[in-house]
């Protein structure tokens, strides 16, 4: 397996220049994603308006895979309805974990397909998505923490 399959150029570029690397203020949903094993640590903040992601950002620190994942996730989801967001989240988690994953409609996110060949790095790609899921599903309590360990 070549390293370039894991670290696709797009991933390296988003790691260097992450998009939406910010706190959304005011936000309607947020969650803190933390990987206690390696220290990856991000807060995902979202403003939902009329069932649509009006704005979304992520802030924190971590490896190239986790940072690029946050960047591409936010870029993909901005302006999209909640149903689409949750569906894309499921498809993304499948993409990085299941061998026979269907990667239709994932757009740029398919660059993370190589991650599943690196089992110890799956949690890096999934971290911001888990935080997103937590933020949207546990709407009653803002500022939750999820971990990928």
């Amino acid at each position: 397996m070549s390293l370039n399959k894991l670290y696709e150029q797009m991933i390296l570029e988003h790691n260097k220049n992450p998009r939406n690397f910010k706190k959304v203020d005011p936000c309607t949903h947020s969650s803190h994603g933390h990987n206690p094993l390696c220290g990856d640590d991000y807060v995902v903040s979202i403003r939902v308006k009329d069932g649509i992601i009006d704005d979304i950002g992520f802030e924190g620190m971590g490896c190239a895979i986790s940072k690029a994942s946050g960047s591409l996730m936010t870029e993909t989801l901005i302006g999209k309805p909640i149903d689409f967001v949750l569906d894309t989240k499921d498809k993304f988690i499948n993409l990085v974990t299941e061998d026979d994953a269907v990667n239709e409609n994932l757009g740029k996110l398919v660059v993370f397909e190589g991650v599943k060949k690196y089992p110890v790095r799956v949690k890096c790609a999934a971290l911001v998505w888990r935080a997103l899921e937590d933020a949207l599903i546990n709407t009653s309590s803002n500022n939750n923490t999820v971990t990928t360990e």
Partner: peptide
């Protein structure tokens, strides 16, 4: 500007086992 986990993965490709983390 290079996270230890990324260092560890690339080293592993070269069959070099080092520890990364806290």
């Amino acid at each position: 500007d290079i996270h230890p986990h990324d260092i560890g993965t690339i080293m592993d490709q070269e069959h070099i086992a080092i520890r990364v983390g806290h």
